[in-house]
Design a protein around this nucleic acid. Structure first.
Lengths: 109, 109
DNA sequence: TATACACATGACAAAAACGTCATATGACAT
DNA sequence: ATGTCATATGACGTTTTTGTCATGTGTATA
């Protein structure tokens, strides 16, 4: 394995790791509809505010969401450029393989 | 949060979790070129055979690769239908955000 | 400038994922 | 039938990831 291919697999797996968390995906799903403040996200998902902040920090830093301040609030919005086309492909894959993903023991749960 | 949106985020995060591992991405990268046996994959990547088998089991079960027996060997090939279009989008995202993904501390390493 | 509200950060215990070791199964050749 | 090569499986310790608790920072309003 060359060091270049190591870099390739590292960066690509990091991309997927950022999305490989149910809480982060819930947030993305919510923001897909419309932008929201941290408190709104916490309340609507029933997650602790601090947990939501942690995940938003990751999603924001990695380019999946963008944020702007509005008074006391931070408003987070989805960066649709990447997420929307990806989700289309994922959904097509899930049509066939969702049940297998659920029972793949390498991905346990 | 409705139970339906829980299911949505669960299945979607499982999809990404399957790809969120550098070894599995290395294997995918290798199979992108051409199909290979388990030993060939192990040798070319410098990974233990047993590790490669574990990852191939996951990738196969989740629909990312397909396999066929050829004598004593198992030949694994990429299911390009999902992976190829996804990688195009990922690469575009990485052009902008790769360095951030590397230093996102939620994704440490 | 004090107080409340909104959000972010750091640290840490619990849970999950990874890789490895030992070993099992399967296929072919002798 | 037995040996050998190729691959798969199970179990387990280590590492990584996760969510939570305590607390810090920023913004507005009185």
């Amino acid at each position: 394995m060359t060091s270049q291919s190591t870099e390739w697999s590292t960066s690509h797996s990091l991309f997927f790791k950022a999305l490989a968390n149910p809480a982060r995906m819930s947030i993305i799903s919510l923001l897909h509809t419309s932008q929201r403040s941290v408190t709104e996200i916490s309340d609507e998902l029933g997650f602790e505010q601090t947990m939501v902040s942690h995940h938003l920090r990751c999603l924001s830093f990695c380019g999946f969401v963008k944020s702007k301040r509005k008074g006391k609030n931070m408003i987070y919005a989805l960066n649709k450029e990447t997420i929307v086309p990806i989700l289309k492909i994922v959904e097509k894959h899930l049509e066939k393989y969702a049940s297998n993903l659920y029972s793949c023991d390498a991905l346990e749960r």
